[in-house]
């Protein structure tokens, strides 16, 4: 069954038709060519596909594209504004929070949502916040450091 949807992705409006069964992750990757959102599993576990829907982190492989109708979607491609990297992006680079880069978009999307509710987290809180995001490369050590740095940058910015 085809459904008409209209979504705003990274500030841009898209209108199109999707099959009911199309996952939001596939819509973003295949229909919109936003391939920064990655697919790492089929059990909604790994978080590589994490994006924001109306500002909240969600695993885009666990939502139907048709459900995003009328929503504001932000993907990793929309994290930087006017060519300026988001503090989270800067921090991942500065603290070597990525190696192969595959988990990175999802990590950053989860972390930015997390810092909204907990702008000043402890190390343990950061580790727990990443329960739904797997990384095989970094041992998480520098991802935690990156998020700590981002928290600092973001709280200094306000």
């Amino acid at each position: 069954m085809a459904n008409k949807i209209s979504v705003t992705v990274n500030g841009k409006q898209y209108t199109g038709e999707v099959e009911s069964r199309t996952l939001l992750s596939d819509y973003l990757r295949e229909d919109l060519s936003l391939t920064g959102t990655h697919i790492g599993c089929d059990t909604s576990s790994c978080g590589a596909c994490t994006i924001h829907i109306d500002g909240k982190a969600v695993k885009s492989c666990t939502m139907l594209a048709v459900q995003a109708d009328g929503c504001e979607v932000t993907t990793v491609e929309g994290l930087a504004t006017n060519g300026n990297l988001h503090p989270m992006q800067e921090s991942f680079k500065e603290e070597h929070g990525l190696q192969c880069g595959f988990c990175t978009p999802g990590m950053m999307m989860t972390a930015t949502d997390f810092l909204k509710t907990n702008p000043n987290p402890s190390e343990q809180e950061i580790r727990e916040a990443l329960e739904g995001n797997f990384c095989r490369c970094t041992g998480y050590h520098n991802i935690v450091r990156s998020i700590q740095l981002a928290a600092k940058k973001m709280s200094e910015a306000v």
Binding site: T35, L79, A80, K93
Partner: peptide, 24 residues
């Protein structure tokens, strides 16, 4: 020296090109 990685830019902006990202 701990030079920051030059490859990071494309990954943190979602522009890495993995095989499944390629369409023809």
């Amino acid at each position: 020296k701990s030079v920051k990685r030059v490859e990071d830019k494309r990954f943190i902006t979602g522009q890495g090109k993995y095989t499944d990202d390629i369409k023809m």
